[in-house]
Design a protein around this nucleic acid. Structure first.
Lengths: 187, 187
DNA sequence: AATAAATAGTTAGGCTCCATACTAATTATA
DNA sequence: TATAATTAGTATGGAGCCTAACTATTTATT
């Protein structure tokens, strides 16, 4: 083990409040350091979770995207159009094509041309694909539950509410060049 | 605009509570559907934020990783070793090498061999790199602040606390084949 | 001193996802 | 009907990050 890098740092280490403060003070900005900290921490958490998720699903020979596609199929009687999958998963159709390619190669889904619309190709969950979901269900959901195990039921509700609002705010990063002040244009 | 895909779905649409419930009920698992929902929503939020972040930084000719590297340099007198950068940013040394390559090509940083240790190559922030940070500071931090603008000061504190605990729980996804319960082994 | 082990940084190749541009099929318009 | 515009799915090339393996240098061991 000569080649080991400790990536999984403690959350406290990632972006500290002191660091956020220094950045803001340096330019004498009228910005709430805690707001910046929340944004930074969420980014760090998102990256960490994304990575952990890939490790988790790779145990079952899947990736995050491929699992989500299978789960969406299962939730829709095992048959969905690629464009619908793209919408459900929140990814592009091009990405869906790639996911299906791999899943089809592994025998978990297959494509079937539509008889009503020659452009469409329905994606079908195979028996093997359904079995894969069945086999991994227990461990998968147990791990998800354990992930939020440090939160009480009430705290989970609060977290869900706050996360939802922050998620709405993400558009502040991508909106057009921002008028002037950081005032939110919700009423 | 014949080729437009609406990726930025509303958060409510991504994984619904009903969908989580159906998944759990299908296999009659003893799992809290809300816990699964929290985990799923956080994953979705993380992915969305990561994407938005890249769009945000691309306005300044940077990526998320390259910005974070520059900011870390600025926070350490403009000179840090690559291995330290990797640790601060929570990425591998290989990734840092790639980030530096691009930043050096753009004239925002440069490498300088160490005199005390021939293996080390310090990364130095150039004047141009410092100017880049200065020029983007106002808009960057204003957008970050706006992102959490839907939360009150108190709510931000709560969110930070809850997010921190969930982040700790992420290891539940990557830990060894799960002993039994999701008890965390911190003291 | 000579050899082995560890460390710093890099390279090579992989994965996930995206934006863009393309082909084939359908629908609207004239 | 003939043409144009739209739609479904796909190919291509890129960005970001990873793991694993490699080179050069330093430190530890003998």
């Amino acid at each position: 083990m000569a080649n080991e890098t400790n990536i999984t740092n403690d959350i406290d280490a990632v972006p500290s409040l002191a660091q956020s403060k220094r950045q803001i003070d340096r330019y004498e900005l009228d910005i709430d350091a805690q707001a910046v900290l929340v944004a930074s921490r969420l980014m760090a958490a998102g990256a960490k979770l994304g990575h952990a998720s890939e490790i988790h699903f790779s145990r079952f020979g899947l990736s995050t995207g491929r699992y989500r596609l299978l789960a969406d199929l299962e939730d829709h009687e095992g048959e969905v159009l690629p464009s619908q999958l793209a919408e459900h998963l929140g990814v592009t159709r091009a990405t869906v094509t790639g996911l299906i390619d791999t899943l089809e190669r592994d025998g978990l889904v297959f494509r079937r041309s539509s008889s009503v619309d020659g452009r469409q190709k329905a994606v079908i969950l195979t028996e093997q694909g359904a079995r894969k979901l069945r086999d991994m269900a227990h461990e998968h959901f147990a791990r998800l539950e354990a992930m939020v195990g440090l939160l009480s039921i009430e705290e989970r509700s609060v977290f869900l509410d706050l996360l939802g609002r922050v998620t709405k705010g993400i558009s502040a990063l991508t909106d057009e060049p921002a008028g002037s002040k950081g005032h939110i244009s919700n009423e």
